[in-house]
Design a protein around this nucleic acid. Structure first.
Lengths: 370, 370
DNA sequence: CTGAAAGCGCTTACAG
DNA sequence: CTGAAAGCGCTTACAG
């Protein structure tokens, strides 16, 4: 940003600035008394209070947040850091189907933050370090600190990003959602993905399915691996050997799952159920089965994961593993508050999932080909 | 929030606070010199500068944004106000299909804001007025002022909300997107919806269609009415009488359009094209036509509006009226900057739309039933 | 090139 | 119940 060198008086001030001094003058009191009214101090006469209210209303006065914050050492601001896009911005990925769950989660997060008296802040503008030789990994946290955020809530959106390191090492209280990074001032909150995938697989096993295809989003993301593990565990515990041909890596996008489903269906039909690692992927699978003239669940059962709202309205409605978005959000904000207050480092929070049985899963066919 | 009455020293300070005083001491200089280095003042010896850099790095110092802002009278913060949900929060509606366009728009807005050195701020926490008798309509703007935002960018999401009034009347620089509210410090930016609908309708007319069904989202939203007007104008100019049975009000959700399409198809098939007021609605229409075994565009042509990314990947890819999201976002941020700088009230910005012809529209059938 | 001083708008002990 | 004063962390004329 270009700041003219003509000195501060030339910077356009926020034109609507009204100071407590003006209120005080109009009400015929001192700034101290105005401040007392604003902060609900008990010791102000009713009459004075009235006069000050009137002056406030007349002038349209509002406390300057920076001045207050500087004294109280708080900003009520928490950074919402959504990593993952190449441009470094927060909102770039939000239209991708694979992040629909996070989109839905965000509203819970906003609500919980508001209840704890926090505003959300999207750190978008580029950070301009004093020393150009600054370690890029420390820069990000520094930028947040300069902006006065009290803490950070991070959705890493399945990616590595140097800013994660920066937050882990920094003194800024940080909660990672769906990741397991920790640091002296950082911990995490996430669903129990392994247990969830276990539940999903068990549900299919109980319906008599043994040849269960698994569609995984990727090979390396933590949440992907945990789900895969749950699938493997459940099958192993049931004494079922996994056919590697039935485990497909296709990406998290609904369209990718759609394509992969078409591929596997062309190749083989020796499975009676498909477990997709996310609801969005399951919706793609449903579409592919439909396109191939297969009935769900009569021909193939389908189960998803996440419990996004779209899963209720698919055709047929999707059996899924519901993540408890309320508990995740409330837990994240609560733990962040604890961190900010300097309380003892809270334990990470692992939120249980819940099997929601809808119409996309059913008993395996007697004459199934599996 | 509960503030203990034991005085400020008991409030937990942001634990990581490092002051310029500490940097100054470590570097053996005055706070003034530290400040000069931070603000890139020319007149500091290279040696001193180096010492200060070292001290900054050692201590992990970052300028306290509030202190700086209080002097410079700027916060670099603009409020992103997404109205429309009952709970008053900003992110509640983002998973609705009808707001997909705005979701996609947001990333352009964030990018433009970052380029102009603004951060985005979501005012979520409840405003706690001093005077409980405060006019609720002025409260919202007051709340924003207290938080120090320099301006507000508003997406009203097709609703009335008292906060809109509040912003219109307030001294806070405000840009409305997709609405035409104005005030002494407020103006707007939007696409030319009427002209866009004109283009869409003309495209169908040129392909020989005369019986063109129109699906409108609602009866009262501005953007809905403007589009309807464009449709009416284009038909009138072509000398085509509108059949009121072909104009359907169904709501903006993809599913609503899907249902309405099923309804009209059961009732009549005396049309050769459908113009849906949004791409999302058009996607619903496409799905319904497909479900009824009709081919697009052979049996029925379909055109949408918005140019959301999903329109490229539908089956068939959707002919649509593209909104220029880049121009809308850049215009909004530019005009907001002008307002903030106190420049002359800028004119509202009406952004032209563009017809994108894809595969969902084609010439009317010779043996068409229309 | 650098420091002492004044100031931003506010809040809170400290007196009265 | 109220005011004068000191202070939050910073920046910027003003001197030197």
């Amino acid at each position: 940003m270009f700041i003219p060198s003509t000195g501060i008086s030339d910077l356009r001030k926020m034109s609507f600035m009204v100071t407590s001094e003006q209120v005080a003058q109009l009400a015929g009191v001192s700034r101290a008394t105005v401040s007392r009214v604003l902060n609900r101090s008990a010791n102000v006469s009713e009459e004075t209070r009235k006069r000050i209210y009137t002056a406030i209303a007349t002038l349209g006065y509002g406390t300057n947040a920076f001045s207050r914050d500087i004294l109280q050492q708080r900003s009520h601001l928490i950074a919402l850091a959504l990593f993952g896009s190449e441009d470094g911005l927060n909102l770039s990925h939000l239209t991708k189907t694979q992040f629909y769950f996070y989109l839905q989660l965000l509203r819970f997060i906003e609500r919980e933050a508001a209840q704890e008296n926090f505003d959300l802040f999207l750190p978008s503008r580029p950070y301009d370090p004093v020393d150009s030789a600054d370690d890029p990994e420390t820069m990000y946290a520094l930028a947040l600190r300069e902006r006065g955020v009290e803490g950070a809530l991070t959705l890493a959106l399945r990616t590595s990003d140097p800013r994660i390191q920066s937050l882990c090492r920094s003194p800024i209280p940080t909660i990672f959602i769906d990741d397991i990074f920790q640091g002296p001032h950082a911990t995490y909150v996430k669903s129990d993905y392994t247990e969830g995938a276990h539940q999903a697989t068990n549900h299919l096993l109980q319906l008599g399915h043994k040849r269960i295809a698994y569609f995984t989003g990727d090979r390396l993301s933590l949440t992907g691996t945990e789900r895969l593990l749950g699938y493997q565990q459940a099958l192993a515990h049931a004494g079922v050997i996994i056919d590697p041909h039935l485990v497909r890596t296709c990406g998290w996008e609904a369209d990718e799952a759609y394509q992969e489903a078409l591929t596997i269906l062309k190749e083989r039909r020796d499975f009676t159920a498909i477990f997709a690692a996310s609801d969005m992927m399951a919706l793609g699978v449903l579409r592919a089965l439909h396109a191939c003239g297969l009935r769900v669940p009569d021909d193939v059962s389908v189960i998803g994961f996440d419990g996004i709202n779209l899963s209720e309205h698919s055709d047929p409605p999707l059996t899924t593993i519901q993540q408890n978005m309320q508990a995740i959000s409330a837990g994240a904000i609560t733990k962040l508050s604890q961190l900010i207050k300097g309380e003892e480092m809270p334990e990470p929070l692992i939120v249980p999932t819940q099997l929601i049985v809808r119409a996309s899963t059913g008993p395996v066919r007697r004459n199934g080909s599996g």
